[in-house]
Simulated scan of single mutants.
Amino acid sequence: MHTETLALYDSVRRRPVPVVLYQPTVAVARPRLALLSHGYGGQSTAYTFLARQLVAMGYVVASVQHELPGDEPIATTGNLRETRRPNWERGVQNLLFVCQMLQQRLPRLNTGQLLLLGHSNGGDMVMLFAHEHPQLVARVISLDNRRMPLPRTRRPRILSIRSSDQVADPGVLTTAAEQRTFGITIVALPATIHNDMWDGATEAQKQEINAIEAEFLRR
């Protein structure tokens, strides 16, 4: 796996958008693109176990750094689905910008099969992206997002992996009937807490998460 750091800059918003790019060492004719979003307060470099597996499955992975020094802190009061929305909207704009830039840099990318992954607050970002731009996304995977409801739709296809210690807000997760209707997959991890869903997890935890994601992506 080849790793590269990109110092992208969005001149319209006057905002840096740092990206860690993971690519196969051996060239793939039409690699699919995966955009990865970290949890709040996290780093784009903290999910290499996910990136490594996705690269092995033929993806180019762009891990986006959403929070920067000097950014307003995330809201902790009020209706968090509303008060955190500006943070998620900024994340959606970051992801759209990175996708556009990578299409220019890597014309061989197959962006028609876009995969979004996000942990915690990053999971809320990617679910908002799926609500607002469903035509751009093939699959979305969240690791324990808690605020933004999963889209009730067959496209994009949805997987949400849930921790043992955090509960999603009412209406975020789908009912069993909705899962059957829309083909949505929800998997609970009884031995993994919310803050374990990154490179600091045990090898067993990382292997379990990767196995669930691989099964979902191979369907």
Rank of each mutant, 00 (worst) to 15 (best):
Q65P: 14
Y40A: 13
L36Q: 04
C99E: 06
S63C: 06
S44R: 11
S44E: 07
N87R: 10
M101Q: 14
S37P: 10
N87F: 13
S63M: 00
G41Q: 09
Q100N: 02
R90Q: 12
L106H: 11
V92L: 07
D71K: 11
H66I: 13
M127R: 07
L95S: 09
R84C: 06
W88A: 03
L36N: 06
N94C: 15
T83E: 11
V126C: 08
L96E: 10
M127W: 03
M101I: 02
S63A: 14
L117P: 00
M57C: 12
L114V: 01
M101R: 09
G112Y: 07
H119M: 07
R90V: 09
S63W: 00
G39I: 04
G122K: 13
L95E: 06
V60S: 05
F129E: 00
G118T: 04
L136E: 15
A51N: 02
M101S: 13
S63P: 04
G58N: 05
H131A: 07
P134D: 04
H66Q: 15
L68K: 14
E132P: 05
Q53K: 10
N79K: 12
E132A: 07
D71H: 11
G39W: 04
F49V: 07
V98D: 00
Y47S: 00
M127V: 05
G58I: 00
N79C: 12
V137C: 12
M125D: 04
Q53G: 10
Y59H: 13
P107S: 09
T48P: 00
L33G: 00
V64R: 13
V137D: 10
E82D: 15
E67C: 10
A130R: 00
Q65C: 15
V64S: 13
S37L: 14
V64Q: 10
P73E: 06
V61G: 00
G70T: 10
H133I: 11
